[in-house]
Design a protein around this nucleic acid. Structure first.
Lengths: 254, 254
DNA sequence: CCCCACTACGTACGGCGTACGTAACTAGGA
DNA sequence: TCCTAGTTACGTACGCCGTACGTAGTGGGG
């Protein structure tokens, strides 16, 4: 049985050597394939990324792609890692972990705006790709001034990314839906809003009607984003939160 | 052109009458279809839910399903609404919005544990299904003691749900991956961990190695969940956050 | 030098969403 | 009451998808 035999093994793609010891030189590189897939996803959305489509994009037969990427899932992993390379981690930590964290979150948000398929294709299992490691290490460096255990810091990173992802998905939801919809843009959203208004006018859900009637339309998204994250970080900031009075759990023991 | 003609229109499924004015009595109900789809998803995962599979489940031809559900997307919407009915919203708000919010979040977490496909199939566009309205209204009622504007309250709801979703996806990630994986359970995760250990032993990423080496394995998940959400709520709690001090980044100006 | 691992690629299978044609049925208006 | 138009039910078909597998050619290590 060959080491990197034909039938897939439970192997991380990053552990596969890019170039085999024997045989002809591969006609393409992982980076090239990842870039092609990212190009397709940017242009046509996550559903546009198919093995056939990406193979065509780099100009090879469909099944040749499987020499580089044993399963489609691994293609996703390549894509996520590729765009993670867009993080600019060159700035030295300022010492203000709050500000640095907000800056990192802003980069994530911008990244997801550039690549709206990212939240959908990202998975916790991709957490250890090369560029994810770079990112995590940098984040931990940024958090060094924060007085907290390693577990808490990982928790912070995870929650910040979760909130950013949630936030961006909400931000982009209408636009993405419009792109996928077979109807003229806006029409689907209009139908949805009309239904909501009709439903709220029935008098049940008075609080919701009040909140929505007050119109949360013309909000400054950037400010709202910063405020939401600020609130989250407040919860981790020993300088801003009064010590846990009652039932809150103690710090994680060593 | 028929009102609910054959070709789909940009219509919310909840605005479609379940029973048409004319024609034969439909052999199935929306609730029955939603329950069947939920059953399939619970048993076989989100990818198991296909129009063919669900049609077979209720015992009708594939294309007959399209009389009830114009697009697959709408089937998802039915499913999400159906499981949202599992929320127990009968308890009167206690007056302690923090405790009530944590209880709601715990219900969401339990719901997602019962239906692991929920995070993947839920979309911001489903936010106004009948049971979603019930849920939102109840949440706003719970938040009445909180001194904040309607926009802030919606923000809180959105962020709580985002964090819960992120948290559960992380919790269930390994199990879900194992269910999908074509390999013996655990083998894929083992390969991933082996690669991580190999990579961290190379000496770059020292902080990450330290944190992971310290082992964040045997943690109490329930406590961690409560702590994470508690931190988030801290940020919304006027009673717990000290007014913006000096050194840390100032609040975003109005 | 030669062997064989590796590359490239076409064919084929089973599954998907869904457009469309057709037949049976049923309620409202004449 | 009967007619007719709209609805239900359902099979067929199209163009996608992921990918197992067979085959031919290539080039580096023993």
């Amino acid at each position: 049985m060959a080491a990197s035999g034909r039938t897939a093994r439970p192997e991380v793609i990053w552990a596969r050597p890019e170039r085999a010891a024997r045989g002809p030189r591969p006609a393409h590189t992982r980076a090239e394939i990842a870039a092609a897939a990212v190009r397709v996803a940017d242009a046509e959305g996550a559903d546009g990324v198919s093995m056939r489509r990406v193979a065509a994009e780099i100009g090879c037969g469909t099944m040749s792609l499987y020499n580089y990427v044993p399963r489609k899932e691994d293609l996703y992993e390549l894509m996520v890692d590729a765009v993670s390379a867009e993080y600019d981690l060159s700035a030295e930590p300022s010492g203000d972990w709050r500000a640095d964290t907000l800056a990192l979150a802003a980069q994530t948000r911008a990244l997801m705006h550039r690549h709206p398929w990212l939240p959908r294709l990202m998975s916790p299992a991709h957490g250890f790709s090369p560029n994810a490691l770079r990112y995590l290490e940098h984040f931990l460096r940024v958090l060094e001034p924060l007085d907290a255990g390693g577990g808490t810091k990982m928790e912070l990173i995870s929650m910040v990314n979760g909130v950013v992802s949630t936030y961006v998905v909400n931000e982009l939801s209408e636009a993405e839906r419009a792109r996928t919809s077979p109807f003229p843009p806006g029409q689907e959203h209009a139908a949805r809003m009309a239904h909501l208004a009709r439903e709220l006018s029935r008098g049940e859900h008075p609080r919701l009607a009040a909140v929505i009637g007050a119109g949360f339309a013309a909000v400054d998204l950037d400010a709202q984003f910063a405020r939401a994250l600020g609130r989250l970080l407040d919860g981790f900031d020993p300088a801003r939160v009064s010590p846990p009075p009652g039932p809150s759990a103690p710090r994680s023991p060593a």
